[in-house]
Simulated scan of single mutants.
Amino acid sequence: MLTSTLAPQAAPTPPAGDKYAMLLARCEGLPPIPTAVVHPCDYASLDGALEAARLGLIVPLLVGPAARIRQVAAEHGLPLGDIPILDAPHSHAAAARAVEAVRAGKAELLMKGSLHSDELLHAVAASSSGLRTGRRLSHVFAMDVPNYHKPLFITDAAVNIFPTLNDKADIVRNAIDLLHVLGIERPKVAILSAVETVTDKIPSTLDAAALCKMSERGQIEGGILDGPLAFDNAISKAAAETKGIKSEVAGDPDILLVPDLEAGNMLAKQLTFLAGAEAAGIVLGARVPIILTSRADSVRARIASCAIAVLVAHARRTAPAVPA
């Protein structure tokens, strides 16, 4: 088991109405999870990992160019203590070594540092040496939107560019499984498109209708699906009623399933930069959760991403893993 001299500290008291508060609260009393931090070679990624360790969420194993990691720590006054470092000459090698560490049982989480997401996910998805399962890899944004009444999860806005129907089914399954871990027994899934009617002129509406039928037939379990829904109908009950839409999901979704990566990425960033939302991020569908953060993320969003991954990792210790 990895250890660290960084003494865990209590998480700061969140402001009233902070939807990320539930994540840290659910982590209280749980032991920290050994985490391979991949190529933490800038201040933001290294400080984020160390802050998560100080809060008792993770036990970091730093993977990357050892001299460069120590240089960044020294330049910014970040204490490394006795945190182990797996030396790797560059980011590509760091991704491969981190995946090897997970396969060897040295880590139960992966955390992205200062490398491109594609580089990390390429190592994860390698057919013979990676961390693939029978599920499609997919990304989930956990959004804290100030004017929405509960946490809002957007998927997939970072991994699958143009997902097929079968891809979307796995994307939904991954998101539903995540929300079960977070204590939401029957998450409501709004399947987004440009319109709320099914038409062969817009393929995403056909996918939405098929996914709802798959849910009815038990091919997708554990959630309540409805779609296609335009964004206004999904978020606003009044907008849905105006158009005569009767839905358990409209006005109260937990999950927004987007048609493709472009739509999802723009939606998440619009909420972040225009509506003041914060976005934690995690990749699911691999043998272990992957904490996927951006250099633009706030400290709170980084810690929330860690908290989500920690909860998933603990759930996997006591339940079957994702199907192989």
Rank of each mutant, 00 (worst) to 15 (best):
G56R: 12
I58F: 06
P60R: 10
P60T: 08
L61M: 12
L62I: 07
G64A: 07
A67G: 03
R68Y: 06
Q71W: 01
V72S: 00
A74S: 13
A74G: 08
A74Y: 00
E75P: 00
G77V: 05
L78C: 08
P79K: 10
L80S: 08
L80Q: 03
G81H: 09
I83P: 02
A88G: 05
H90Y: 10
A94I: 04
R97L: 13
A101W: 09
A101L: 11
A104E: 15
K106N: 07
K106T: 04
A107E: 07
L109Y: 07
M111Q: 12
G113K: 01
S114E: 12
S114K: 15
H116L: 13
D118Q: 07
E119P: 00
L121W: 01
A123V: 02
A125V: 06
A126Y: 05
S127P: 07
L131Q: 01
R132D: 00
G134P: 00
R135P: 01
R135G: 01
L137G: 02
S138N: 11
H139K: 07
F141L: 10
F141C: 12
P146I: 04
P146Y: 10
N147L: 09
N147E: 12
H149M: 03
L152K: 09
I154E: 04
I154Y: 03
D156R: 09
A158K: 05
V159L: 10
N160P: 06
I161G: 01
I161F: 10
F162S: 14
P163H: 09
D167E: 14
D167L: 07
D167Q: 14
A169V: 14
D170I: 00
R173W: 03
R173L: 06
N174H: 13
I176A: 09
L178C: 10
L179Y: 11
H180G: 14
L182M: 12
L182N: 11
E185T: 15
A190Q: 08
A190G: 08
L192R: 10
S193E: 05
V195E: 11
V195P: 01
V195A: 14
